[in-house]
Simulated scan of single mutants.
Amino acid sequence: MRQAPDGPLSGAARRPGLPRGPAERGHPAPTQSDTATVQAYAHVRDLPADALALLAEAESQHVEFGADWYANLIDTVQAQAPRSAEVRLHVLRQDGQVKAVLPTVRHARRLGPEVASLSNFYSALYAPALADGVDAPALLPLLRSLRRERVAAYRFAPMDPQSRPFQVLREAMRLAGLSTHAYFAFGNWYLPVHQSWPAYLQARSGQIRSALKRQGKKFAAEGGRLEIVHGGPALMPALAAYESVYARSWKLPEPYPAFMPGLIQLCARRGWLRLGVAWLGEQPIAAQIWIVANGRADIYKLAYDETYKALAPGTLLTAHLMEQAMDVDQVREIDYLIGDDPYKAAWMSHRRERFGLVAYDPLTVGGLLGLARQQIGAAWRRWHPKPALHNDNAAAA
């Protein structure tokens, strides 16, 4: 194991049966410790204004930390979850001031409930929203309120192991008496942007440059064109084009079909969307979803129709969107988000890692069993180590 506010909320309907204010059905009453109070809410739209403001501050670091992201995730994913999975957004106040918002999902289990981050395979990064100056002891009242519910296990991922939220949450769980462990989640390739698109392209290998030039000429000769949609009247045709390409690609159908349309429309409304489409005549043959905000360009989704693989529409579209991100949007970083797919090293220059946190309450049966499994798994990995992925930050060829 490796150690280590702007824009209105979506108006989608709330999951039936969930309470409006501080959680009622199956939710704890507000708890108090000295001058600290903790309340739980079932949806971001139920949060008070000061808690939304703290989420807005967090969103300025990454879009997935904001209220709009969580609203779409709740409305399109969690709304389809079993009743045993309940969204709870825990708000910690000290002397009446909001100090933290911890978005979670509480899962009912046979050997005791588990609390997990409000995230899933659509999430590239997760973090609690913390006010300035909040440290691990300040977060303790929130963790203690969860322990009083006899929560057996806690799972938070994916997180940046170098970030303050990761360090604070890990130490707070330890201080609360939980057996806490960090684990590797996935690799993340990214590119700090210090140059224009022409300069960047010149630094690529001759093979990449010649391939882009050759394939670009062939694509144009066949009647191909590239389009980047931000929103407006072109949005719905571009969304339909993306869904058409995705359905004809090698990728499996989306398990939650409403999530991506919700995200695309959210990003268009907030000015974040860069939806690239490669057209061959009137036929869309490749599509990519990039999210541009806070000086970052996140490459979120991509797909192409393998029938037209010889035209390299995905490669040409990536180059077109990178030029937009560098020279028009002038971002500081381009991020390939999840995974160590080999092709990412050809475009990106650096690699970092995302981790998760898992903690067990040793005073619960479920926690003891989880801890035992954790220790057995750790011993197995020590005796059967996997080769470590070389993590140098040299520029890709």
Rank of each mutant, 00 (worst) to 15 (best):
V193T: 12
R148K: 14
L337F: 04
G21Y: 00
A40S: 15
P255W: 05
S249H: 05
G216K: 05
L102P: 08
H90K: 02
L130W: 07
V44P: 01
R45N: 11
L235F: 06
A220P: 01
L369K: 01
P48G: 11
K213V: 02
V105D: 02
R270G: 00
G133Q: 15
A172Q: 09
G224A: 12
A79G: 04
F65M: 14
F65C: 10
Q283I: 13
N393C: 04
L317R: 02
Y41R: 10
V245L: 05
V292C: 14
R214Q: 14
S84A: 15
E306C: 01
V151P: 00
L52G: 13
L143P: 02
Y190M: 08
A234C: 05
A157Q: 14
A312G: 02
Y242Q: 06
A131L: 11
A116W: 12
K386D: 15
L389G: 04
G112W: 11
V328W: 10
Q97D: 14
A51H: 02
Y126H: 12
S119K: 00
V115T: 14
A4P: 01
F121N: 08
V38M: 13
G271I: 14
V229S: 05
I338N: 09
P5W: 10
Y246V: 03
G377M: 05
G177L: 11
S145G: 09
E59R: 10
Y360C: 02
L52N: 04
W69F: 15
M260D: 03
E243I: 03
R351K: 08
Q283L: 13
A172M: 10
L263Q: 10
L140Q: 11
L55Q: 00
N391K: 03
G356P: 08
Q97L: 09
A182P: 02
G356V: 11
Y300C: 07
T35N: 07
G223L: 13
L212N: 05
W197T: 06
L47Y: 03
Q80S: 12
M173E: 04
A124K: 04
K251S: 07
Q80P: 01
A325T: 11
V292H: 04
L169D: 01
L357M: 06
G339F: 13
P198M: 11
E24A: 14
K301S: 06
A12W: 12
P362N: 08
Y190A: 08
A56D: 15
G231R: 03
A58T: 11
S244C: 03
V101Y: 00
V229C: 07
A258F: 05
G11F: 05
L178F: 07
Q167S: 13
V101P: 00
P253V: 11
R144S: 04
W347K: 09
H320A: 15
Q3P: 02
L316T: 01
D6L: 13
T180V: 14
D68I: 00
R373V: 03
P342I: 13
E57H: 06
R274W: 07
A58V: 13
L239G: 03
V365E: 02
A116Y: 06
L111H: 04
E227H: 10
R352M: 10
G216W: 03
V365M: 09
G112K: 11
Y246F: 12
